[in-house]
């Protein structure tokens, strides 16, 4: 059972990446365009209420791809909107904490202190 659980994470995570690859290769999008598109897609899925079940199903297969970032922000905003109405849409956004961003900033800063760009290796 645990194995199937991991397999689901693998397959669904992999499929989300395949969508990204198709956007890059077939859609001729730059990486930045691709990731932005996926984040917006995650937001929309969250609005439809489909992303939470996907996370329940695939675990990290759905939380690791960047789409989950859109989901986190949107479900935060929706939860606040449910409680506080119109104002909540805005405040909810700022109440959301995403560890992906905060850890990226912290580790990015640390990395800048200890590493040097490597152009030698190919």
């Amino acid at each position: 059972m645990i194995f199937i659980d991991f397999l689901l994470a693998f397959v669904i995570g992999g499929l989300i990446c395949v969508i990204g690859q198709l956007l890059m290769d077939v859609g001729k999008l730059t990486p930045a365009h691709t990731l932005s598109t996926l984040v917006v897609a995650g937001s929309i899925l969250a609005g439809l209420g489909w992303y939470e079940p996907l996370i329940d199903l695939a675990g990290a297969g759905a939380t690791i791809p960047i789409t989950s970032f859109g989901n986190a922000l949107t479900s935060g905003a929706i939860a606040e909107a449910e409680k506080h109405g119109w104002v909540g849409v805005l405040t909810g956004m700022f109440e959301v904490t995403s560890s992906g961003i905060s850890s990226a900033i912290v580790f990015g800063f640390i990395a800048a202190l200890i590493f040097k760009p490597k152009g030698k290796v190919n």
Binding site: G13, G14, I16, C17, V18, I19, G20, Q21, L23, M24, D25, P31, T34, L35, L38, I64, P65, I66, T67, S68, F69, G100, S103, A104, I105, F107, G108, F109, A111, A112, L113, F115, K116, P117
Partner: peptide
């Protein structure tokens, strides 16, 4: 990997970290 390493949150981390390391020479 292409999108295989860009789409997971590690790709987001890589984009942030590589930019941080790259621009170290312009000060913190």
């Amino acid at each position: 990997a292409g999108a295989g390493s860009a789409v997971p949150v590690t790709g987001f981390g890589n984009a942030v970290v590589s930019a941080a390391i790259e621009h170290k020479t312009e000060g913190l």
